[in-house]
Design a protein around this nucleic acid. Sequence first.
DNA 1: TACGCAGAGAGTATAAATACGGAAAATGCT
DNA 2: AGCATTTTCCGTATTTATACTCTCTGCGTA
Lengths: 214, 214
Amino acid sequence: MLINVLLAEDHNLVRNGIKSLLDSEPNINVIGEAANGTQAVQFLQKTNEVNLIVADYNMPGMTGGELITQLRLNFKDLKIIILSMSDQEKHVFESISCGANGYLLKNVSKDELIFAIKHVMTGEKYICSELSLRMFDKLSNHAAINLDGINDFTKRELEVLKLIASGLTNNEIAEKLFTSRRTVEGHRQSLIDKTKVPNSAALIMFAFRTGIIN
Amino acid sequence: MLINVLLAEDHNLVRNGIKSLLDSEPNINVIGEAANGTQAVQFLQKTNEVNLIVADYNMPGMTGGELITQLRLNFKDLKIIILSMSDQEKHVFESISCGANGYLLKNVSKDELIFAIKHVMTGEKYICSELSLRMFDKLSNHAAINLDGINDFTKRELEVLKLIASGLTNNEIAEKLFTSRRTVEGHRQSLIDKTKVPNSAALIMFAFRTGIIN
DNA sequence: TACGCAGAGAGTATAAATACGGAAAATGCT
DNA sequence: AGCATTTTCCGTATTTATACTCTCTGCGTA
C-alpha cells in the first residue's frame, strides 16, 4: 500500500530534510510540497491523490488550527499529521480537536515519524512519545500523592471541600447542608489544618493535585 | 544493530505468535523464552546477551511489579517492555515507576511493537498509543474550556493568578510584585470577572482545569 | 461505668477578600 | 498625532475567611 504524502512546511531546509527521510521509505511517496497553508490547500484541490498531509503548525498566513479546520472540512478522507516545535499543550489539544490525526514534535526520530504515518493511515490517532510521557508524568504526579494517604478527611469535610471547589461561600454551603455557617467554617479550617496549606486557594490546589477533585 | 530479545509470557500460543512476529524482523532476534518470571530470571543469569525482555504483566508466581523490580535490580542495562491486557492505570504507573521502559497493551499492532522495541533500545520510554490517547482524553477534558477563549489575561494577571494559587495572600503578593495590596486585589477581581466565577477558590479550579496552572 | 478521643457544631475577634467606583499610564488603531 | 481601549493602580465599605477556643455527642475500650 503506497502512501501519498503532501509536505507542508515553510522552511526549505526542514522540508527538504523530511522529504529525503520519507523518500527513503519504500511505501511512502512525497507527491507534493507546500510552503504555507494556502499552497497546501491549492495543491489538494488540484489532485485527489494525497492520502496524508504532514504540516507544520506554525506557518505564515493562517494558524495551525485554521489550517486543520479547513483541511478537515474540504478533504474528508485526508489524514492530517501536525509537526510542531511547540510543546504547548493548548496547541496539541487544539490540533486534535480541530481534526488532526497526529501531533508530533519536531525532534521525533525518523522511525517514529514513519510509524506515526503508518499508524495514522490505519485510522488511529497518534501523539508522539515524548508528549505522551509528559502527559503520563502529569497524571502520575496526581495519582502519586493520592497513594501517600496523608489525607484522611471525614465524609463531612469531603462534602464541604467539593462545595468550596464549586465556588460556594461558607454561607451557601451551610444552607445546602442544613447547618450553620460557623460549622462549615470549622470544616474548612480543619481541611486547611490537615493539609497544612495557608488558605482556601491553596486547599483547592492541593485537592486538585491529589486527585480528590477533578 | 541486532537486538536480542527474551520473551516472557505464560500462554504458549501467545508467546509463539509474538515470537514469529519478532523473528520476521531482521534486526530482532528472540534468543530465549520463559513461561514465568522465575524462568526469565534464570535465563538472564545464565547468559548476558539479552538486550531486552518483553514480559507479560500477569504471570504466575510473582506480580508484574515484583518481576520488574527484580529485573531492574539485577540486570541494570536490560530494557524492559511490559505487555499487558490490563489497561488499569495503576498497573501502568506501577510498571513504569518500578523501572519498566515500556508498557504496551496486547492489542498493539506488529508495527507498534517493533517500533516500541527500537524506541526503547535508544534509551527512551514508550507507552502504547492507545493508552497515550486515553491519557490525552483525560487531560483534554480539563483543557477543553481553554479553547473557549474566555481567558485573555494580561501578564500581570497571570502573575497574580499563579501567586494566588501558590497560597499567598493579597498582601504577600503585593510585596512580591512591589505594588500595593489594592492593586493586587484589583487584579484578583478582574481575574474573577473575566472567568465569571464567584470567588478565588473557583478561580483556582478554573485555572487548573484550563491548564493555566499545573 | 468511666475514660479518652474524634467529629460535628458553634461564639468572638481579627485578617483578608470582594464589590463598587474612579484616575493615570500604556497601548493600539487609524 | 489623536482617539479609544486596555492596563495598571488605588480608596472605601461590606462580606467572607481564618484563628482560637469551647461544648456536645457517639464510639470504642480499659
